[in-house]
Amino acid sequence: MDYFLEIFLSGLTRGSIYALIALGYTMVYGIIELINFAHGEIYMIGAFTALIIASVLTTLGMSGPAVLILAGIVAVIYASAYGFTVEKIAYKPLRGASRLSPLISAIGMSIFLQNYVMLAQTSDFLPFPNLLPELPFLESTAHIMGSTDFIIIATTAVVMVALTLLIKFTRMGKAMRATAQDRNMAMLVGVNVNRVISATFIIGSALAAIGGVLIASHIGRINFYIGFIAGIKAFTAAVLGGIGSIPGAVLGGLVLGWTECFATGYVSSDYEDAFAFALLVLILILRPAGILGKASVQKV
């Protein structure tokens, strides 16, 4: 039973990591039906920014939560600026084009950002300091669930609730829903669609940056390539949960995380990915729109 619990918690942490990144994918897809492949790179840039700021602050003699908060804020601002710019450069000019064009543009952006960071920084792995504080009440359970695991899980839950509230109850949220339903109609009734889309990218990128800081603290190392694998897994999670749905992204992340961890724990880690993708295929056969996705009529 203990072993089951350990594996369950491992899966919860891993699933929350996927979910945190998957939220950004799903938001952008929900609004403009674009799979933003550069999202994983925004996550990576967030982690790099936090590392640079944290190193600077540590040399200046700061320590503890202040470093985490300052580095986190700068990372969020910086990554949001990147998200905003990527949208303006790579997606906005293609808004009227067929759906494939922005997809290719997104893949191009992803490759560009990876190589940009590799050239501007380094291709080596860099150690990432554990910025997260040790929570005293978790000391006794550190062998199954450490502070970083707990903080990642809690953050994912908070972010999911906050996003749902934002979309349900604020003016911006209403505008987002309107844009998602019918962009032209929303424009006709006076919604500033460009601003809504920019806001979506900024929020998505901010989430990616928060994810970047937390996950890098958990793993303890970063390089320019981390966004790719995390991005692919998070994208899988978003599709699994029903792309476009916010609770769906979190659920998809958790289901994926648990599947992988239980496959490792009870079968063999050799088949971790095989189980994860077999599940994806199975769910997409039974529910083509994902677990919580709504089957939509193709707008022509």
Binding site: S10, T13, R14, Y225, E260, G265, S269, D270, D273
Partner: peptide, 17 residues
Amino acid sequence: YEGITPGAVDYSSVVQK
């Protein structure tokens, strides 16, 4: 005796095992 997935976000389940 097992193989792990390179590049995965964490290895806690393998470590537990």
